[in-house]
Amino acid sequence: MTKKSKAKDMPLGGVIPKGGNAHDYETGGWRKFQPVLDSDKCTSCLICWVMCPDSSIMVEDGKMVGFDMEHCKGCGICAVECPDKIKAITMIDQEESKEGGCE
């Protein structure tokens, strides 16, 4: 009748006994809107990289190359912070984007 509690194998009191494991927790599923990059416009100023609260701006060799969609929550901060003269990021409805292409 009594199922063995799962928490018996978990750290006491809910402590997370290791650091640097936030990456293991995927927050991409929370997303309603999705950022889309226009790489023709982007100057790789990396303001979005600084401002993204989820470290989801991917940068290679100093160039903005896209988004980490496993962690991007779709808050839209990057789109707002991308300088007015550039505006290289647009937020689109996640569902529409699926209908449009992914499925």
């Binding site: 799962k6 006491l12 402590v15």
Partner: peptide, 18 residues
Amino acid sequence: ASMGALALPDTYMDFKHV
């Protein structure tokens, strides 16, 4: 280590059980 973390419906009750 992190303390005082969130536990959602999949684990909260187990922590209380323990």
